[in-house]
Amino acid sequence: MLKDITIGQYIPGDSFIHKLDARIKIIITIIMITVLFLIDSFIGFGLFLLFVIGVMVISKLPVKRVLNGLKPVFFLIIITLFLHMFLTRGGEVIWEWGFLRIEEEGLFTGLFMVGRILLLIMFTSLLTLTTSPLQLTDGIEYLLKPLARFGVPAGELAMMMTIALRFIPTLMEEAEKIMKAQKARGADFESGNIIERAKSLVPLLVPLFISAFRRADELALAMESRCYQGGTNRTRLNELELRRSDIYALIGVIIIAVLLSFR
């Protein structure tokens, strides 16, 4: 049951988008998110959507996987829409029933917000779908490096992310083992209401946490004895390398971003 949970959502591939440098992809994502908040017309949203679809086609991702990413935020979208529709005032009254009233302004802001959230999630999931967690970590480390001067521990953060990724499957396996052990002693994880079920997780979480701390302890020893002295002064097996196509992609995106936001 726990084995079905995948780490990240990376789908391996060899498209142009997959091969782009992780740093460039992160920068592009940041640029496009900014653009998304500058757009204030439906035409703008439409053009942005076209761009997203374009990237999706180039990256040869299954459409279903991209849309799957939207499922968890479904409620957020509905709530955002309704809150804006009923609470934001201004413009003509479109619909009225008892104390409920929808005005023009509210409807538009609501739709804008929904459009923003949808496109935001679709676009950011394109990043995680086409970039392996490892590359993503490397990319973040490189981008944070200049901030090391101001005390941002870029190397340590990257190491933390790598270790987290490394230990997710190990801890999953362990959780499953503990679950089986507790079940064998009569624990019940499946019945009861939500509060009861949450309570039944305590005998699973306590041993899991204890063992995680023990692992952390041993891992720290092992890392120290392999000469780990913190994130500074380390080199990498696979250094990231900017290629010409990365630069072109970045320039292309900047042009699109400028056109979209100052149209």
Partner: peptide, 21 residues
Amino acid sequence: DNQLVATTVEDDVAFGPENLA
């Protein structure tokens, strides 16, 4: 399990040499 740090074999073996810069 508690002494491997990276998500792939090669990255893990590289950990020590990386620390030696």
